[in-house]
Design a protein around this nucleic acid. Structure first.
Length: 296
DNA sequence: GCTTTCACCTGTGTGC
DNA sequence: TGCACACAGGTGAAAG
């Protein structure tokens, strides 16, 4: 499942293989893959043909490719991409057979012999075209202006994050998954960072002291950087980078998916609890529940 | 205004 | 063998 490290790996691949190339043709093979582009597949293709792609950018789990312009005001449009749960952006040779779940194909006006493919089994992801926030040097698409900066962004505001946590009347894992508070954290890295911080997922955000939230942020960054270093996390080949290679971080997970296995700190059997239509993995000894009856 | 719930999707695995 | 069902989970609209 692509979270921030996986998306960053894809961004780097796009930067290397796609940036600076000019779009020659676009095939939309499944309309759901561009459902956020309200004007439809024909408009999506027509607006892209002839445009040169700028440097790939990322905020949290969103990626975008600015469409270069000659004006001094920066890019005014950008292709926005979200991989959802199973999306892949692959750079493939023209002659490579179509993937079973190929949704969008973008061909380029050059002789490099490769094309960009958006492949997505569960169709939660997609591409779309948007105006950018006026004056934004990175060409941030307007529809994701509400997404918070991610913890690997040098401009991430730790003091504001802590203040927001204290203001909220919610629990810590919900807050970590709220992309308007902090972006890029999904179910896997939330469980990993909470385990490292010895925090229970149901702990109230209002009870977190500044040192505790600082420590949590440190662990979020650690686990993301470690995943980045090995190319992201992959469980079932649904996630691969732009060259089709899987990440290896799943071998290093301490919490996620380790139900009944011994905690790597204290040896207690790890537990899984249904949580918001998904699962939370935690150590019942290291990560004490906030209320005696809240977990067993 | 803030917080919580649910629909959207498809492939895989399990139990009967 | 075939069927029903649970599960994976990010996002945003709708409900509370």
């Amino acid at each position: 499942m692509p979270e921030l490290p996986e998306v960053e790996v894809v961004r780097r691949g796009l930067e290397r293989w796609v940036c600076g190339r000019t779009v020659a043709a676009v095939d939309v093979l499944h309309p759901r893959a561009i459902r956020r582009h309200l004007a439809g597949p024909g408009d999506f293709a027509a607006q892209l043909v002839g445009r040169r792609l700028g440097t790939a950018r990322r905020r949290g789990k969103y990626l975008w490719l600015p469409l270069e312009t000659e004006g001094p005001t920066g890019p005014d449009r950008a292709i926005l991409a979200h991989l959802g749960m199973s999306g892949q952006l692959l750079v493939q040779p023209h002659e490579a057979p179509d993937e079973k779940h190929l949704r969008i194909r973008i061909r380029f006006a050059d002789d490099a012999g490769t094309e960009l493919r958006f492949v997505d089994q569960r169709t939660f992801g997609g591409l779309s075209l948007h105006d950018t926030v006026p004056g934004d040097p990175e060409g941030l698409p307007d529809v994701i202006a509400h997404i918070a900066r991610d913890p690997l962004d040098p401009a991430f505001d730790e003091a504001a994050f802590h203040a927001a946590l204290r203001r909220r009347r919610t629990t810590i894992k919900r807050a970590l998954l709220d992309q308007s508070l902090i972006s890029g954290v999904g179910n896997i890295y939330a469980d990993e960072a909470l385990w490292r911080s010895r925090l229970h997922y149901d702990r109230s955000t209002a009870t977190l002291t500044r040192p505790r939230s600082t420590e949590l942020l440190t662990h979020i960054r650690e686990v993301m950087n470690e995943a980045l270093a090995v190319g992201g996390t992959s469980f079932d080949s649904l996630y691969v980078n732009v060259n089709g290679e899987s990440g290896y971080f799943d071998r290093s997970l301490d919490a996620y998916g380790r139900e009944d296995e011994p905690c790597r700190r204290c040896g207690t059997a790890m537990r899984r609890r249904p949580w918001m239509n998904r699962s939370s993995y935690f150590c019942p000894r290291c990560q004490r529940p906030p209320r005696p009856h809240a977990a067993s």
